[in-house]
Design a binder for these strands. Structure first.
Length: 231
DNA sequence: CCATGATCATGG
DNA sequence: CCATGATCATGG
């Protein structure tokens, strides 16, 4: 049996230790973990959207902060919580990273931020149903994922198509409908925020910052594979 | 019903 | 503003 989860006092020394910590969280409600850590559980997440992810970081020993790197750089692992139904269907897309909109000439998929972030992901499913209070939302079975050749190719295709449009000054023509498994969407405090990009005539323009997100059809397949492996 | 576009909190 | 952590809210 697993020991009760504990707030981590140091980063995990290896992947086995990281996975042991993650497995200890399975079956625990967020409210228990929060109170055990001395945190207050919000009544809803509308003004605390990153709360669950930050609580899990605390228990796994991820270095908190806003560093533009993986959560466990020494292990090469990125941490992602994902809100799911009891059947294991994702309730939201998964944010990957923001993207620069200039200076992309010559950047290859192999060197992209998206690929770096997704090389190895520790997924933590959490009940994400809005009708369930955050305190009662149960954590699911974690799994470690590395893209296989097919998944890598799907991600690469979308990234290359979207990146090409950005380079050609078409960023304002990109919608969330582009891409099979990866999409580009706004990533900002509000729709007034501006960042530098390339316009249709090649000149610099100001536009809304964008980030890459995994579509739910893609993460749904990952979750189903993990369920089948564990049954 | 659900995906797209919009938004919230925090630290630097 | 930018990067981290994401979910909200409404139009289609």
């Amino acid at each position: 049996m697993n020991d009760l989860p504990q707030v981590a006092t140091a980063a995990p020394s290896d992947i086995a230790q990281l996975m042991a910590r993650a497995h200890a969280l399975a079956g625990m409600p967020l409210g228990w973990l929060a109170s055990h850590a001395g945190w207050i559980t919000p009544a809803n997440l509308s003004r605390h959207k990153g709360w669950s992810g930050q609580l899990i970081e605390l228990y796994l020993g991820a270095s908190a902060g806003s560093k533009p790197q993986q959560d466990f750089p020494e292990l090469g692992v990125e941490l992602k919580t994902i809100p799911v139904t009891p059947e294991g269907k994702p309730l939201e897309t998964t944010f990957v990273c923001v993207t620069p909109l200039t200076g992309l000439n010559g950047v290859r998929w192999e060197d992209s931020n998206v690929r770096n972030k997704l090389r190895q992901v520790l997924w933590i499913p959490i009940d994400g149903r809005r009708e369930v209070a955050p305190a009662d939302r149960m954590i699911g079975t974690p799994f470690l994922w590395r893209p296989n050749a097919i998944e890598d190719q799907l991600l690469r295709q979308d990234w290359e198509e979207i990146t090409e449009m950005i380079i050609l000054g078409q960023v304002q023509a990109i919608t969330a409908r582009h891409g099979q498994v990866l999409q580009l969407r706004p990533k900002a405090a509000n729709s007034k925020v501006l960042t530098e990009a390339i316009g249709p005539d090649g000149a610099r323009i100001q536009t809304l910052p964008r980030g890459y997100y995994l579509k739910t059809n893609f993460t749904a397949a990952l979750l189903q594979q993990a369920l089948q492996r564990s049954s």
